[in-house]
Design a protein around this nucleic acid. Structure first.
Lengths: 115, 115
DNA sequence: CGCCTTAGCAACCTTCTAGTTGCATATGCG
DNA sequence: CGCATATGCAACTAGAAGGTTGCTAAGGCG
């Protein structure tokens, strides 16, 4: 199971870092929010009233896509992007594990003090 | 409730982006993992066997600190860092909201098709 | 067909970011 | 006191990230 102890799951950590980084930008969070409405949207639609160029939006979408947060499919002359919530759920689990570990460690330390 | 529609909670989004970005780095994820063990650790300890300079680690810790993920307190000649899981829980909630919105939107769209 | 819309690609610019090195400080210890 | 340890601060570099502009290609529509 590759749980040898010294490994620490570096590959997994790299992946998580990628997804976190993809979400670490205000513009991209807006895009994710827009796409969370369910319906696939074209780049022009996603641009909306933003002051940014279409190209900038495209780049952000590529970043999200590389992180697996978004999928694109071309229909006619427009390419429509839709959200894939799977990586977000992975992050959620990751965060849960970390703060759970924190909580457990805390109570363990506390009981040490109390005894 | 400030739910006017055009605002979309930009300030909150900016904050979330900051925290996501802070976690969007492999080295910083390692630091968080190390600190999740509960006990406050010094910079030298946190550096461990990393091939990076102490300074690099320090900078990463500052980033985590700016995002509120970590607090530091100087004791004697060493400054000890400890984890603050609160921002991580905020992110967890944020992610839950988004994927929940996604799920609901999906079933809504699906029932439209089926009817 | 001719024109507008929606995109992709590439080059370029500017601003952060990750890391390094060098030097100055303060705390512990024998 | 004198030296090793543990940091902090500042200047600097290389490379990535966010954005822009210009040009080209392909799908829709009157």
């Amino acid at each position: 199971m590759s749980r040898a102890g010294s490994d620490t799951g570096a590959a997994k950590r790299r992946h998580h870092a990628t997804v976190f980084a993809a979400l670490g930008d205000e513009t991209r969070l807006s895009l994710v929010a827009a796409l969370s409405a369910g319906e696939p949207r074209s780049i022009a639609q996603l641009r909306g009233g933003a002051k940014m160029t279409r190209q900038a939006i495209t780049k952000h979408l590529r970043v999200l896509q590389s992180a697996g947060l978004v999928r694109s499919a071309r229909t006619g002359r427009e390419s429509r992007f839709e959200l894939d919530p799977a990586p977000m759920n992975e992050l959620k689990e990751y965060l849960s594990r970390v703060s759970q570990q924190w909580d457990q460690a805390l109570s363990r330390l506390k009981s040490l003090v109390e005894s």
